[in-house]
Amino acid sequence: MLHHFFPEHSFKALLFDFDGTVADTMPAHLAAWNKALDKYDLSLSREQHLSWAGRPTARIVEMMNELHQTRIDPEQFVKEKESHYLASLNDVTPITSVMEIIEHYHGKLPMAIVTGSRRKIVELTMNQLGIQKYFDTLVCAEDYTQGKPAPDCFLLAAAKVNAAPTDCLAFEDAVLGIEAAHTAGMNCLKVTDSYSLVHTR
């Protein structure tokens, strides 16, 4: 299945970003952001949301504070935003093109989730979609300090699945995540807005 993209390469592990890659969560996350930001008279555009995708929520709040000269408490905001997101969990669906690859390689290659979201939110979403059985490990926001575009999360995931970074294939939808995967020394497939898979350089 992956030989279509990489005819000369046999991968030993597959590493997947979660939001916008495995699960179509981005509309629900953006709506949750804007519901939580409303009381501060702020909003987040779709373009800004996508450009920051991959960073932990608390870090984005810090960046918004710098940008707007506000003093939003990151920890409190994370709780409020997550509450809004969980209320719309029924609207989240898996991304079919990626799930086909996950199902095909299940039991053949180790697979990990590598995300800037918090573990609780990822696990609840995976349970809702019934896909937790496919993944050997989760690397979430609590597991590393430097978020994407730093390579730390992908390098940690490679270590957890016992594979050299060059033997891992990453799947990403966001610019920061693709940069992180490449910096980690990994090949990467991008999930486009139309949910097709394309090579990244």
Rank of each mutant, 00 (worst) to 15 (best):
S43F: 06
N127S: 14
L30Y: 00
V61P: 02
K39W: 00
A141C: 06
M63L: 15
F16R: 10
T21Y: 05
Y195I: 08
F5S: 11
A36N: 06
D17H: 07
G116R: 05
V98R: 01
I72R: 11
L86S: 06
I101Q: 04
M1K: 06
N162W: 01
V78K: 14
F6V: 09
I101H: 05
I95S: 08
A184W: 00
A36S: 15
I113P: 04
H104L: 04
R71H: 13
I72A: 13
F154I: 07
L37Y: 04
L14T: 04
E172T: 12
L50N: 14
K108H: 14
E66S: 15
H3N: 15
K39F: 09
T125S: 04
D38A: 15
E103N: 10
L156H: 02
H182R: 08
Y144K: 01
A163D: 03
H9A: 10
V92N: 07
A163L: 04
D143E: 05
V114M: 02
I72D: 12
K190W: 00
N187H: 13
H106C: 05
E82I: 07
G130F: 06
L30T: 05
A36R: 05
L138Y: 12
K12W: 00
L109Y: 12
H199M: 15
H84K: 02
H9M: 08
L89K: 13
H4P: 00
L89N: 08
R46E: 14
L44P: 00
D173Q: 01
M63D: 11
D173W: 01
D24N: 08
D91A: 15
R46L: 14
L15C: 02
L2N: 13
H106E: 07
P149Y: 08
L37K: 07
D136P: 00
K190S: 12
V175A: 14
N162P: 02
I113G: 04
D173A: 10
P74K: 08
K79P: 00
T125N: 01
T183H: 12
R119E: 12
K133T: 12
D17M: 06
S88R: 11
A58D: 09
C188W: 00
E172F: 02
F6G: 09
L109P: 03
K81G: 06
